[in-house]
Design a protein around this nucleic acid. Sequence first.
DNA 1: GATTTTTTTCTCGACAGTCGAGAAATTTAG
DNA 2: CTAAATTTCTCGACTGTCGAGAAAAAAATC
Lengths: 416, 416
Amino acid sequence: MLTKSSTELVRQRNSVLVLSVLRRHGALAHTEISDFTRLSSATISAITTELEKAQIIEKSEQQPASGRGRPRVLLRQRRDCGYLIVVIISSDAVQYSLVDYAGKLIDRFSEERSHDPAGAVRFVAAVRAGLLRILDRSKISQEKVLLISISSKGLVNSTEPVLVWSPIFGSEQIDFESALRPEWQAKVILDNETLLIAAALGAREEMVKGADFRSLAALSLGHSVGLGIVRRGNQTGQEISAPNFGHMLHMANGGLCRCGTRGCIEAYAGFYAILRSAFEVPLDTIPAKFVPVAELDKIAAKARQGHRVPAFAFRQAGLALGNGLSRMLSLTERMPIAITGPGTRYYDLLRQGIEEGLGQSHIVRMEGMPEIRVVADEQILVFEGHLNRALSVIDEDIVLSGVHGAQASATIQESG
Amino acid sequence: MLTKSSTELVRQRNSVLVLSVLRRHGALAHTEISDFTRLSSATISAITTELEKAQIIEKSEQQPASGRGRPRVLLRQRRDCGYLIVVIISSDAVQYSLVDYAGKLIDRFSEERSHDPAGAVRFVAAVRAGLLRILDRSKISQEKVLLISISSKGLVNSTEPVLVWSPIFGSEQIDFESALRPEWQAKVILDNETLLIAAALGAREEMVKGADFRSLAALSLGHSVGLGIVRRGNQTGQEISAPNFGHMLHMANGGLCRCGTRGCIEAYAGFYAILRSAFEVPLDTIPAKFVPVAELDKIAAKARQGHRVPAFAFRQAGLALGNGLSRMLSLTERMPIAITGPGTRYYDLLRQGIEEGLGQSHIVRMEGMPEIRVVADEQILVFEGHLNRALSVIDEDIVLSGVHGAQASATIQESG
DNA sequence: GATTTTTTTCTCGACAGTCGAGAAATTTAG
DNA sequence: CTAAATTTCTCGACTGTCGAGAAAAAAATC
């Protein structure tokens, strides 16, 4: 449904635009902002003075003039405009990071995760405690925290911050919104971890290729299998989604998966599945909850030495991934695939299977093999994705709700 | 990438908004437009007088006043503002329809399709002749044709009107843009047939449910298998896609498909596949080019009488469809599925397989079986989808490029 | 038949936003 | 000290939307 447009909307959108180029390129002068946004100098003046009055951006300290002419005055976000807490939930720990409005990391710690099975309630309590702890350590007032950005593996509700299914808690849903609302007025967002990886890679790619960038998929290999897809939207930035790839059907009536279904991709390509297959355990045995990486390393070593059974296990995993990717490509379009996660260390063993699995589909035979690249530093990508996403959400929120109100309160502060 | 906004953009978007409510609700009075668009009366005046000067809309004939007060003046699109040619390519014929700007059908005919294999070039020539023929019959000047909207089964390039793969011509690409550009200045768009069905069903659904509508998939069963997905976009209307569903991998190293790959869904669920399976022909035999529906009816009759082999053929088809749909749902979200096409007459035989195939996946086990409905009148839906899509494209084009220019030329005409 | 009521359309002034041009500011080069 | 260069700021013009009220036009009422 289309909706009406007004001149205020124009100002809002252009304000967000100014903030976003500031975000992307760091501190910028008036003229540079004008160049990047294609807005006239007069408009930049109007917008920046408004944002400055609202205490969202500030003029930077005078820096040594680097040429003739009137020296530039750089504009940058005010670090103390607001704060962001990033919560990264992984299988064995939860990492809390406090970040300021300029994207600078202020504080960070990790907490071990309790592995007790009936732990959803206790887990939520732990997250609440962790959030209060990082706030307490920083001496920042709670109202200044504008956003809490959470990520986890698993399936996430697309509109609300509800974890619908996760490898650890299964179908025991976790609603972060209602869990945190009592003590936090900050907005809460929740994203799938691999989605954030895809978003970060997409942003990097767009930096390089510019308008040529179309789409990209990120595949994360580990105890579980995740997929994120980022596509260039029609007009409004990027469109990202995190399908339930690990539990997409690979083969009807296939191996038993952790989720209780038979034949999921993960039941062939997850770490536990490779282990199960390498030890020739029947495919309908209930899989191990957790597999030490060292264990898998041993299997990989044997496979590299030429032992048939472990090599076959990796090959089967590759085939499941390749088939799944080919199905994903059939449902979307040809796009490069970036593989991340701890599983990349076995890529030499997986590769042939992946390529064969991809090659078995019409789309790949017709359009050719998609570009596959291995990307390290999964953790950095996740955090980068958090920042990209969270800070632009904050920018939008500030402009949408804040500028006029904040401007008024700023005037009061000045006169008071 | 965000882009700058300006006041002209506001006017453009609001003009499109006015045209779209006119499109949706038929002739409307000033006040009604204001109600629907939430724009003020003054703005409606400004926009409508502009559109009227540009000869895009007109005041309707005075109708008997139906109450007290100043009588309403209805505004409607000018039928002669421009024309649209709809070309529906099906396996045995090509249908040409001439439609005016108000969406009214003016002329229509079908032409048999030559089934010669080396026919891509000849086929394009036939389409060009057909287009000229329908233009000639109508006595409309060629410049008045603003858009040629083509649909076909198969895989379509998402940005340009290029048929990438089709059941009949295979990988022999057809670029309608370059084929028609010499003699037509009209814009050319090409869509997958099932995508248009999905778009039409989505529009209907949105009429009923309003903002509650989220997404919907249309599955078309026939000689080939098509899928269209429509999702409510973030802000700008609907987002539709037509994946290569029929040739998504169903089973690695499975039955041979028309496309030359093994294991496509169509190689189990297409009409030829059901035939092959019912006659217990080996799955690697090259499939029949064309299967008379009567032949399939016979098999269905036997299956309904309880014969095992033909019943199994339908069941296998259902399983392939169900597995494929479950994979699609894993990659998107839970959504209702509408089944159309000639294959719906065998739905009683397919149903059990489809449901079982769906049930084998994690997503369906977790979120439950999606709603499945059978929808008749596929042809009507295709045409409706064409109109929805094409006319809104025309509206946008007119406003974007036309209003000021057309206004100028109108003034010239008046003074001349 | 004149007047009032009701409903719709049109018009006017206020306000918000962007833009181009040029003025003002401020530094380096000579 | 002056001229040149460069950046920032300001002003008036233009476009757009809005609310209020005037104008139009028919039915209802006296």
